[in-house]
Design a binder for these strands. Structure first.
Lengths: 177, 177
DNA sequence: AACTTTTGTTTTATTAATAAAACATCGGTA
DNA sequence: TACCGATGTTTTATTAATAAAACAAAAGTT
């Protein structure tokens, strides 16, 4: 695959745009409406910047503007927001409930990657979490075993999980430490 | 936490820079040296762009330039590369071996998020994979059970795993489909 | 040595996301 | 009604990452 690494910031729409859309969603939930100034305050950027970005998003049919300058997500915009929000949510749960990461790390990491993950990955992760959180006996045993488990990274040569130059080498890693 | 969403492209160094460093690493492995032109070809960008970026990275002490214009990673640069590579590696394995995503999706998603994940998350994921890939009986049972498991997303209201506006709603999701 | 090719650098330009400030408009109130 | 404050828009500027093209230097070839 050519130029995989460039795909990173070629998401359409961009990370920034998605957060503008999520702001609209959030403000509607909270206040029942979303104006430019509200979005600007929420995202902590200027009104001018918001005006420019939202005009583009309007032209691309992610949202509409009514007579009162209130913004509304279109079907298309809402779908993007839902998709990102759901991925963030499930990733965060995986990070905190399976990997046992502190809430802030889980939140931050989930937010950073939410819109980069494919929907396919999101779906599979939901499936996994559905299983992991079930009360099936084999799952309970698995969780119990994991509680006890400590992964001791062997010498660089023997480490099965890292690439060469394993930077965790020598560290003992457990769920909690 | 203020402006979490902005943290996304405030990684230091940037996604692009890290890929320049990874190119140096890769080319050293493959050819034993790394020149500007090689990096440009590898990343599929122009020599001019590489020259500018590498000068900045040199000034920031991520790499050095020798008399022959060959680039070498410093300790600091090597550490960044290792960290990103290890995270990519373990994430990719999680995606393909646990979530059973197709190789290309696993690769692409892993590449997109590699440098955004905290080292802490990388470590915990390694620990999890160390456990998941072990031959412990409770793990084997867990894997077996997961093979069979299908997660059926309930109605929006009942879905335990998505946020409101669950976009997977109604779909049956299994490991393989 | 003169020419050609390869490689590296510099300059000019573009695009996206932003700030800042000027400008425009609208709504209320003195 | 005339002004003030809030909000939205436009203009100008900045930064990072890039391309493209001009330029420079070194290395190889004839």
């Amino acid at each position: 695959m050519k130029d995989v690494w460039k795909k990173f910031d070629e998401t359409e729409p961009s990370h920034s745009s998605i957060h503008h859309l999520m702001a609209v969603y959030h403000l509607h939930q909270k206040n029942g409406y979303a104006r430019g100034i509200d979005i600007a305050n929420y995202l902590n950027i200027t009104r001018g910047s918001v005006s420019i970005t939202l005009t583009k998003l309007r032209d691309k049919n992610y949202l509409t503007e009514d007579e009162n300058k209130f913004y509304h997500l279109t079907e298309q915009g809402q779908q993007l927001v839902s998709s990102a929000l759901n991925k963030r949510h499930i990733v965060k749960r995986f990070f905190s409930e399976v990997l046992q990461l502190p809430a802030e790390v889980a939140e931050l990491d989930a937010c950073k990657i939410e819109h980069l993950l494919s929907n396919e990955t999101g779906e599979k992760l939901i499936c996994f979490m559905g299983y992991y959180l079930s009360e099936k006996p084999e799952v309970l045993n698995f969780r119990l075993g994991f509680q006890q488990f400590k992964y001791k990274c062997q010498s660089v040569a023997e480490c099965r999980l890292c690439e060469s130059d394993c930077f965790f080498s020598g560290k003992e890693i457990s769920k909690t430490g």
